[in-house]
């Protein structure tokens, strides 16, 4: 645990850095409000055709949560500086430091994501919960629900960062700033429920996606908040999530290790 302060320091530095992008945060909140209204309209128009498991208020709530926590869950929200570092070969400096690269980058990426989310989610949550019906974001049913939501969100952060690590490993192999994200991001977003809410997908597709790990990054915490997943179901779901996390982190370590060996072999 002796090296923990190093990771904590890095985490804190990224947090401070992220907070300095005020204008970016305001702009992005505005963008997300727009997206929110648009998506809610589209989904409602579909739902009016009948047979929707979510009513208008639930659709609004799901979408507002989606928008509020977008940069926490979306793979495309990447650390541009790290990508440049990797592509220019300057990541070699990171290898010279006496730290575990996976943990080092994990701290960095988690800090960046949390800072960006902290700035963006509060205005959206605050404003969206005061909108008139049926645009309003519903509030969590009880403090216990809120606590479970927070726990699920924390695990979601770990999930997203762990999955995004594959993208950075891929970047290291391709040495292309975009290649690592172009494929991973759309698939992840679709499977996590960031594109279409999982409950609004066709039954068969929804069942498959609920088994895969991606929905833990967005769909699960949102539905905990909305109360459509009861607290009684949680222990089982979270156990499954943690099992998935173990697999993904182990896989990510292997991928990063392989990418590093390859980079060293090529001399990048």
């Amino acid at each position: 645990m002796g090296e923990l302060p190093a990771y904590a320091g890095l985490f804190r530095m990224r947090l401070v850095r992220g907070l300095s992008y005020r204008a970016a945060a305001i702009a992005s909140s505005v963008t997300q409000f727009f997206w929110g209204f648009m998506l809610i309209s589209v989904l409602r128009a579909f739902a009016r055709s009948g047979g929707s498991p979510l009513d208008d208020g639930q659709i609004a709530s799901y979408i507002w949560l989606q928008q509020a926590f977008l940069v926490l869950g979306a793979i495309w929200f990447r650390d541009g500086e790290l990508v440049r570092l990797i592509c220019s070969g300057d990541a070699a400096y990171e290898l010279c430091r006496p730290v575990d690269l996976y943990r080092f980058w994990f701290a960095r990426l988690a800090g960046g994501r949390l800072a960006a989310t902290a700035l963006r989610c509060l205005p959206i949550l605050a404003v969206a919960s005061f909108l008139p019906e049926p645009w309003r974001l519903c509030l969590p049913g009880s403090p216990a629900v809120l606590a479970c939501f927070a726990l699920a969100m924390a695990l979601a952060t770990v999930m997203v960062v762990a999955v995004s690590m594959f993208s950075y490993a891929l970047t290291m192999v391709t040495l292309n700033t975009q290649a690592g994200f172009l494929f991973v991001a759309p698939v992840f977003e679709l499977c996590a429920g960031l594109l279409v809410p999982l409950p609004l997908m066709p039954e068969g597709v929804r069942r498959v996606l609920e088994v895969l790990p991606f929905r833990y990054a967005a769909d699960l915490p949102f539905r905990i908040w909305m109360g459509s997943i009861g607290l009684a179901e949680l222990p089982g779901l979270l156990a499954a999530e943690i099992a998935w996390l173990a697999v993904i982190v182990a896989g990510g370590r292997l991928a990063l290790g392989a990418a590093l060996r390859r980079a060293e072999a090529v001399g990048g």
Binding site: A47, Q178, V187, L200, P202
Partner: peptide, 21 residues
Amino acid sequence: FGQLSIAISALVGVTLLFSRF
């Protein structure tokens, strides 16, 4: 192919919604 996959994921979204509704 990356560009293709982004556009396709949007298309998949629409298709999924239509197949449901």
